[in-house]
Design a protein around this nucleic acid. Structure first.
Lengths: 247, 247
DNA sequence: GCAAAAGTGTTCGATCTACACCCATGA
DNA sequence: TCATGGGTGTAGATCGAACACTTTTGC
């Protein structure tokens, strides 16, 4: 796909991606500033996204946006749903749309996806739809362009709900991780303190992590053991109709 | 909205509705045959749906389709997500699209909704997008036009998942119902037998039904008491972060 | 009185919750 | 030796699963 050939865009349908990343402290979201002919015109942050090409389907478009921004393929990706783009409430958004879109007044709908990535595994790349990109802690994001705040809130809620049902949180961690990192991840997303012992007991019972023969080094405390996600057992659980991760 | 003025349609975006109804025996879905200039050309059943008007948003379009077909407003309605319309795999679908659409080859996406209705509360009305409409048991539906089978399977799965988390099943019943009817509803949707005593105990504990001072009449067995959904307590439960209806 | 569905309690095992101390390491 | 986070077990409460008989009605 030649991303510079922008003549073949569907002017009515876009995708936007809520990309979550975990830095072992906070839950972060990847935000961009959108490119505009007159630079600096769109000052608010927004979610990464783009109109779709006529030749691709929705998921392909979302994968393209993710790949252009992160260089990654095979990312955990799930659709959130379709949203009407807010064209009316914000003057700055309207100016941007008039400057960039062929049909600035058209009723556009955007299909939102959320993605989970291990943010230590790559560097952000410039993308043709973004003039800048950065990670921001989700609890510090107060407003976004184009009604993206609504999409972000939806994504956050969906992540919380889903995490309780399926162990998708592993997608936010590196291949090797400590149980404390996983524990912290759950506390941050679920939004409350979880008992350390009960948390570990549950993981052991479900057998979805396997202990590796490797420990932390150079830490000023008792070194933590590394674990890996046990894909095999996870598949079995899902097949058996397991539907409550239960934290 | 004048539904006969079809000049103002967005040719790229449609909505489709999976309307579930419960007849106290089986879970049913409302299917239609789509209108076509040459009558009888589209023989497969499909989900009710339509292109959206430029002047309405997605949810408004879904509400319009539901209202035109059932005469009902204030229906339980939830978005499932966006799907690419399958334009290629079926010859009959292509013929219909060429006969009816201004841009038959356009990449159309459809946003699917599912709705829960009490099917005893209304008669089906003819709608301008349907030449016929009928209820069909979900387990007897094997194929649908336009890739709607995929949407239906998604909706069914979502209904099952959601029913375990929130007591949305009440939307499928009349205002007054017996516990046996509710019990049967859960068995049919969850897809397995549920213990009668445990089921009732749970309802009582959650306090989401209230016993009415009224019984069945003219039944050849011990008459069952009628119950109603306790909206008040349900709201409290949801606010308290209740997220497991637990069957 | 018979057929048909309504309604009702108890026991046992599994799971969840709450809670506090010793351990291994680097500085 | 101190500061830091890692790692571990138990008891009590709650919840879920399994199970069978009596009641009320129409015919």
């Amino acid at each position: 796909m030649d991303n510079n050939d922008r003549s073949n865009l569907n002017q009515r349908i876009s995708v936007d991606c809520v990309i979550f990343g975990f830095d072992f402290e906070k839950l972060n979201v990847l935000l961009i500033k959108r490119k505009s002919p007159e630079n600096g015109r769109l000052n608010q942050f927004s979610l990464p996204g783009d109109l779709i090409f006529e030749t691709e389907n929705l998921e392909q478009a979302a994968i393209r946006v993710l790949h252009d921004l992160t260089g990654l393929k095979d990312i955990f990706l799930e659709q959130l749903g379709a949203f009407s783009v807010d064209r009316h409430s914000n003057e700055e958004d309207r100016i941007w749309l008039r400057a960039v879109r062929e049909q600035p007044e058209a009723h556009v709908i955007t299909v939102a996806y959320y993605a989970l990535v291990n943010l230590t595994s790559f560097e952000l790349k410039p993308a043709y739809f973004a003039s800048s990109a950065s990670w921001q802690p989700i609890d510090e994001i107060n407003s976004l362009a184009f009604g993206h705040m609504n999409i972000l809130n939806n994504a956050h809620k969906q992540l919380r709900t889903k995490l309780k049902i399926q162990p998708i949180g592993f997608n936010l961690l590196p291949e090797k991780f400590t149980l404390s990192q996983l524990h912290k991840l759950y506390e941050v997303i679920v939004g409350k303190a979880l008992d350390k012992r009960n948390f570990r007991r549950k993981l052991i019972k479900l057998q979805i992590v396997k202990k590796l023969d490797e420990k932390q080094v150079d830490v000023p405390h008792k070194p933590s053991n590394f674990y890996a996600f046990n894909t095999e057992n996870y598949r079995k659980l899902v097949e058996d109709g397991f539907d409550n991760f239960g934290f």
